[in-house]
Nucleic acid binder design. Sequence first.
DNA 1: TGCCAATAACTCAAATTTGAGTATAATGAC
DNA 2: GTCATTATACTCAAATTTGAGTTATTGGCA
Lengths: 212, 212
Amino acid sequence: MSMRLMILGLLMERERHPYEIRQTIKLRNWNESFKLRDGSLYYAVDQLRQDGLIEAAEVVSVPGENRPDKTIYRITESGREAFLSLLQEQFKLTSYPQHPLFLAMPFVRHGDQAMIEKLVLKQLEACEARLARMEAILELKGAIIPRGSSLMIEGFIQFGRTEKEWLLRLLEEARSGKLFESHQMTEEQIQAYVTGLKEFEKKYPPSAADPT
Amino acid sequence: MSMRLMILGLLMERERHPYEIRQTIKLRNWNESFKLRDGSLYYAVDQLRQDGLIEAAEVVSVPGENRPDKTIYRITESGREAFLSLLQEQFKLTSYPQHPLFLAMPFVRHGDQAMIEKLVLKQLEACEARLARMEAILELKGAIIPRGSSLMIEGFIQFGRTEKEWLLRLLEEARSGKLFESHQMTEEQIQAYVTGLKEFEKKYPPSAADPT
DNA sequence: TGCCAATAACTCAAATTTGAGTATAATGAC
DNA sequence: GTCATTATACTCAAATTTGAGTTATTGGCA
């Protein structure tokens, strides 16, 4: 649904054609945390049109050319309502912050130390590059964009710094080999775990967002 | 592909049937940052079987019952290879840390102040609940699980704390109304932006993961 | 002891995403 | 001046995810 939110959000400002929406999403860096694929964009636009949330305002064909015509869309009245309700939906999504490496963590012990070390280093470099980029973006645009938008960028930066700290720890433990130590658990530990588990699930229920 | 990684990772340990895989994923809390749907699980298992990465080890039918038979799967030799290469793939994924609210940020200014304030508060509560849950999990299991797995949980906690800080700032600015101020940009600002933009894109290229 | 909710173990159609392709125009490099 | 790349503006089949069922067993409890 986030594709829909973005499209409607942009059409709240003014009429646009799909490709222009795409450009704007990139220009405003919304795609840094969002996979923008042409297919999904055009698909979503078409759905929105079928649902009557947007409508064709104009079809521009460059004369004497057989370039595809551009269809310029405008948001409808029910589109505006849908936008507000999608905005609320987005606010109601709650989930743990994600990192692709989290899912790999339980398995690193099956991997090769030298390989893992190299891969973590790569991640760290990528993380630092993203951080530098975001800091530059904030400097460049911070003052001229709406406050909400700059808060987004500040969020990237804060999360990026946390990511960096975490990756540094990971790197250290990959180097020291701690990550690959086989662990043994004593009977007591397991016992403590099993008894703890029951009251735990009562006291700390899984997040409501968990679709199980 | 992360579903595949998890399935293969679990079958690296021992044979399991799909439902047991599902249980284990939940028991180990891998689903806290991962949407576990039955459909995807069974689909992925079937694909893996077709690709020869896993194979049926045994079909257990509870005698005298018409409960569906359980098919127990085991990883094959090529499955082991595939697992290692998937693990590397996962390490090569780089992306900005995500938060569902980031995408909503550019649009908050179209929303109603009282509504936004309430929604942010809800987020904050959910964030704190997740944090408490993760801290309890770490306490409960930290000592008896492999180091990689506890690093995952520590990551959740670190990211969760950062999230909380960010949400507090957001709340403050929603309350003060700063989030809804209309902004004006001067000619110079726009000029500075436009000239800065060119060298910016050279110096800070978008992350390689960006599929555009 | 009979009922209700939860657990176990899947299945399936419909919605959506993905990845790759098409075709032309403008731009820059040598 | 031409050759290769990048930008414009989409389309489409195939892969995957989603959401909602289905059927049977077990545990709790009034």
